[in-house]
């Protein structure tokens, strides 16, 4: 037993508080928007928009209105637009309260790797390095292990870093861990997962 993608997204949504400006990454983080409920959350899209709305109805797509994943989206009453320099100014300047991002690897010191695998096709870091360097709180949402069953929560990252010591909280299919002095602290186990299960699946030091 463990959380599925939607349960991980729902758990990540609990991290968000009323009034927050938030940036959601591609993949499971995108699903977080479905679980914010009544909370007043403003989503930033780093290509130059605050107040991102849902996908448009068929036939109402606007080529001038896309998100950072290049998907067609809509605006809301509160929406504002700005250029890329201002967009990353608010990211780097710490105005965005939190970013929820996917990852390939996270280390116990908060190092994050999510942009390249040497020897494989490299597409680029996009805005990920700016986000993790600048936003108030970095929350990683990912599977606890890779497809070979190996831990993605490590003592040290093996892949090139996106940011050094930047992750605050890790939400996986097995539970929730915080980056603290000396390693990771278990905050919560997923339904049907014990602390022993979580430790067994984690290479990083758990304090």
């Amino acid at each position: 037993m463990a959380w599925d993608r939607n349960q991980m997204a729902a758990r990540a949504a609990q991290e968000l508080e009323d009034g927050m400006y938030v940036n959601l990454g591609i993949g499971i983080p995108t699903l977080v928007a479905n679980y914010v409920g009544d909370k007043d959350i403003t989503l930033q899209s780093e290509n130059g928009m605050l107040g991102m709305g849902p996908f448009p109805f068929e036939g109402e797509e606007d080529p001038d209105l896309i998100n950072a994943g290049k998907q067609t989206i809509t605006e809301l009453a509160r929406t504002s637009y700005f250029d890329s320099a201002m967009s990353f100014g608010m990211i780097r300047g710490g105005k965005i309260a939190a970013a929820i991002l996917g990852a390939m690897e996270v280390a116990e010191n908060g190092d994050l790797a999510n942009w390249m695998i040497p020897g494989k096709l490299v597409k680029g870091m996009g805005g990920a390095m700016d986000l993790v360097a600048g936003v108030g709180r970095v929350i990683v949402v990912m599977d606890h292990t890779n497809k070979h069953g190996e831990s993605k929560v490590l003592k040290e990252c093996t892949l090139p870093l996106t940011g050094k010591g930047v992750v605050d909280r890790i939400i996986t299919n097995l539970g929730v861990l915080d980056v603290v002095e000396g390693g990771l602290r278990i905050v919560e186990c997923a339904e049907g997962v014990t602390e022993d299960d979580l430790r067994a699946a984690t290479q990083a030091t758990i304090v």
């Binding site: 996908f55 109805f57 797509e61 998907q71 067609t72």
Partner: peptide, 15 residues
């Protein structure tokens, strides 16, 4: 031309 790279939509019923 303004080509769209990723056309994503929702169904009316979902509204």
């Amino acid at each position: 031309e303004k080509r769209i790279e990723q056309r994503t939509v929702r169904k009316r019923e979902e509204a």
